[in-house]
Design a protein around this nucleic acid. Structure first.
Lengths: 337, 337
DNA sequence: CCGGTTTCTGCAAACGATTGCGGTGTCGTT
DNA sequence: AACGACACCGCAATCGTTTGCAGAAACCGG
């Protein structure tokens, strides 16, 4: 801000009264006479006075700003989370500072630091794929910064969190495949060091076990991208492995699998059923349309923000950490009918 | 911020020296003895001192923060713009406050107001679809807030801006189709009340005219969604119209067209070539892959931010407004080979 | 006419950090 | 012995706003 913006002192000088009077007049304090109030309000209007939020933040020791640490904005899921965050924050009169970790640990640490320096009133976090050391979050916690983790949480950190029930969703996906008659279901899994990756795999395994199907470890392949899915499918086919279903850890992976399967002349869903995860913009436009799991990103963002605001505004914010587990909806489409 | 965070005064008290000395010691001012510096740095480290950015902002009258007004985050294009903004800002040590107008005028005005109150050092804006009154931007300009408009600009406002050349891109798309031998090219157009809708159509028309091809008005159909594209293709086929190419105003429309064309047994690209616009995540995953126009959202965001930072840091920021017109790249893929 | 309200306004400190200026103490030099 | 140079540090003001407290003026009742 160059300067030039009119301050309370400018109003005071102009009206030949004190800054304190102007301040009180602006907020209609009963101590101030109607005449003064009127004069102040009129001048403020005329000079287009805008209270300096920075000064206010300093004085009140709260910034009316919340910080967000997000792995990568350019994902349908994460951008819808942001959208939910922003909407709730806006309604509550809070600003939102976005920090993107780009899935990098170093940058996440830097983000935590700048948000602390900015004295945000609270922070929403989803950790990066790289992160294994959590001391920057413990540090924030020690400084009593209200924090809510969404989607990707820190194991062993006592903090508010909102996640979806990945285990259950994966379980339901797999049951759905089993119920429709598939017996050899492959799982294209995410990184097992991320909780989410493990839970989805575990849900898959539970469903198989429950149905008395054998767990074929060689049908569980770590593949979480379009390209890796293509390779994985190729390998399965080359090895002449028997499979009639694929549960992929995300939609892009599912689509990669889908195309390769089709290219090899197999029919979807007749010969191979395919299910993705985290229903994005893609699922409706593939051919056939893709069965997937709606992660409700917007809802997650808005709930996380509500939880954060609750903790920020609580007189006593030492109440126990809350965990909200959202239901992920299985959306059955053409690829698994 | 509840409190608890250690301040320079805490350090001073602990070491029984003055706050000024601590401040200078922290930034290695030559006036301070090595012994004192060491003591201060060590205590700061130990107590995990973090400078209060709010106090600094007030003192320096600059917040090291830039504001962003964006129509809707949940779009591949806009989220990649944000990503570009965030990356450049991060490297320059700036924070980013995101405000979403949700395509609503009222909210955009409120956004402008809070960003002004927050005393951001500059603002990046893409206007909402609703906005027709621009006084909130003129207001910002009167207050000397550096501003850069990206993608959706304000006509008649002398300000920095970065846009892409829609007309030229559409022209090149159409030329590409013509050069590959198509003679009856349909255009699935966007709403003609939006500038980009008109420009894309005009580019299409120019290319046709230039090549001596006739303009068949009945091949220009207002269709800018997946579903509308399906209907449009159906209609063309039912009417047994002759067409060997489709230029769609965006990718989703192109994909809708693609699927319908394929479903009717026509080969892509042999019998019908298809081109989309604003290369999103989709284009690489369709089958065949979709020729499209890369709008370079990330680049637009990063360039806009660079322009903004330039104006913010300029000693004299009264240099004339700049307009950067980015080339949109035609990415030729399988659907038009 | 005096004491006591009531009504309105201003002083000054505070939030956390920076910085010009002045002050103190220790040397060395002549 | 005296004086200047130098190294080191603190005072106080400042950024814009809020707020407890005190003070001034006006009014009322007796």
């Amino acid at each position: 801000m160059k300067s030039g913006l009119v301050t309370i002192k400018d109003l005071a000088r102009e009206l030949k009264i004190s800054a304190s009077t102007v301040s009180r007049a602006l907020k209609n304090h009963p101590d101030i006479s109607e005449a003064t109030k009127k004069a102040v309000h009129e001048l403020a209007e005329k000079l287009n006075y805008q209270p300096n939020a920075v000064a206010l933040s300093l004085k009140q020791r709260r910034s009316n700003t919340i910080g967000v640490i997000i792995p990568e904005i350019v994902h349908y899921f994460f951008s819808s989370v942001i959208s939910g965050i922003e909407d709730v924050a806006y309604d509550a009169g809070y600003n939102v500072i976005i920090c993107q970790s780009n899935e990098r640990y170093e940058r996440e640490v830097a983000n935590a630091k700048t948000l602390l320096a900015s004295r945000v009133d609270g922070i929403l976090v989803s950790i990066s794929k790289e992160t294994e050391d959590y001391s920057h979050f413990f540090n924030l916690q020690n400084n009593n910064v209200p924090m809510v983790f969404y989607d990707r949480i820190v194991p062993g950190l006592e903090a508010d969190q909102v996640i979806i029930d990945d285990f259950d969703a994966a379980y339901r996906v797999t049951r759905h495949l089993i119920d429709s008659g598939r017996k050899h279901i492959a799982h294209f899994a995410g990184p097992q060091k991320l909780l989410i990756g493990r839970q989805r795999k575990d849900g898959y395994i539970k469903a198989l076990k429950e149905s008395g199907l054998e767990i074929d470890e060689s049908l569980i392949i770590e593949a979480d991208s379009f390209e890796k899915a293509r390779l994985a499918v190729m390998r399965l086919l080359n090895e002449k492995r028997d499979f009639d279903g694929i549960f992929a850890v995300n939609d892009l992976t599912a689509i990669g699998a889908m195309q390769t399967v089709q290219k090899k002349g197999l029919k979807i869903p007749e010969e191979v059923a395919i299910v993705g995860f985290s229903d994005g913009r893609f699922s409706g436009i593939t051919d056939p349309t893709l069965t997937s799991v709606d992660q409700h990103g917007y809802e997650m963002g808005s709930i996380a923000t509500q939880m954060l605001l609750k903790r920020i505004t609580a007189e006593d914010d030492s109440y126990p950490a809350e965990t909200r587990i959202l239901n992920a909806d299985l959306i059955v489409r053409g690829s698994s009918l």
